[in-house]
Design a protein around this nucleic acid. Structure first.
Lengths: 207, 207
DNA sequence: CATATACGGAACTATCGAGTTCCGGATACC
DNA sequence: GGTATCCGGAACTCGATAGTTCCGTATATG
């Protein structure tokens, strides 16, 4: 479970103490996974893309399955820091504030990775758990915080089904990208908030 | 594009005029597809499950890709007949009336097939189109009719975004099954209608 | 400079599955 | 009964890929 984002420093050491190529390899694995899916991905592709040898990959991971598992798990990193979630004072403000172009791009990549492994999820509980933790849970966590805040604020009725509300956004995005093949843009996300999530949360539309 | 459901008569002819084993083979293909995904599915599996020989399969379809394409396309059959859609007088009534145990089962099977091919969809426009037509469009069509009716009735504001409303239900179901791995039951579908779809449609909750 | 370590890359094996071919058998039609 | 037709099944080819092994090289350390 190495952190891909930490391509920090990158001293290109000659003699490396550990397996310093891990981040590049994991990142390459995610790249290939998102483009070709689990079965379409070959270790050679990953190695080549990471400018590494196949042997280097197998020195660290004993099988393709483990590499993928690790690659998926490490997507958990780079998530939003829960501490600096903006509190804009309104539920809509909070939700809209979460929409940022880079996070949309990151989200699409995650979805493509998800698309590449969905058919495996039903057959590999471990992969299912990793995907759950790395791709599904982080989003839900952020949403949960917003809705709890809104309830405390009195903006939203306390008996609302928070879990269902948390799911609406991700579900619409996933369906749109994976099933309909439509790209996600800011307008789509905003309309999801205004036309679906807020009404479901019992918040009246603003004029 | 043969119809799987039409296992009618099934005279088990000796000398067959045409390729009479098509339905069984297509059905077996869908079965295997839903269990193992596109890459996990082998022609041998399909043939064996259909009690057929691999040669029989290739006599009719020139490649695995074409078999899958045809199998997906033929799922369009067995859809709800648009003429006998119940008009219960209310949007909620119409939506709830669509929930039937067999249609839930059928829907789950379709979703599993979808899961088996999502990673291919991004790379095969033909498969994407077939999936769109057979799995996505039929549901949206039914919903569209309900919402249009509700608008005519004055139950729902005319400026509502019908396309978005049509997507909510399928999106929640797909996300729940494929991403969260939760089975779909009647209560879940009802709560989707009452807590999400109707509020988004501007219908007040009933006490 | 000498050495140990990690790497890139290439060559290798073994397996598996797509697609092909062939044949014996069952049966509708003459 | 004879025959043409379709089928099931087995045996085959061939390409691709998971996983392994080996070697030359670069470099940090002593």
């Amino acid at each position: 479970m190495t952190d891909v984002q930490q391509t920090e420093a990158k001293p290109r050491l000659g003699r490396k103490r550990d397996h310093t190529r891990d981040p590049e390899i994991l990142d390459a694995a995610l790249e290939v996974l998102s483009e070709s899916g689990y079965d379409g991905m070959t270790i050679d592709m990953v190695a080549t893309r990471a400018k590494a040898g196949k042997a280097t990959v197998y020195r660290r991971w004993s099988s393709k399955a483990e590499l993928v598992l690790d690659a998926v798990a490490c997507m958990k990193q780079g998530e939003i820091d829960l501490d600096d979630l903006p509190d804009t004072g309104t539920l809509r403000g909070d939700l809209v504030a979460m929409i940022r172009t880079p996070s949309i791009r990151d989200g699409e990549r995650k979805l493509k990775v998800m698309a590449g492994i969905v058919s495996m999820i039903a057959r590999s509980p471990e992969l299912a758990a990793a995907a759950q933790e790395a791709l599904v849970e982080p989003r839900a966590t952020v949403n949960r915080i917003f809705f709890r805040r809104a309830i405390e604020r009195g903006e939203v009725p306390a008996d609302i089904d928070v879990e269902k509300l948390c799911i609406i956004g991700p579900a619409l995005v996933a369906y749109s990208v994976l099933m309909l093949g439509r790209p996600v843009d800011r307008d789509f996300l905003i309309s999801n908030i205004d036309q679906v999530i807020l009404p479901a949360a019992g918040v009246r539309a603003e004029p």
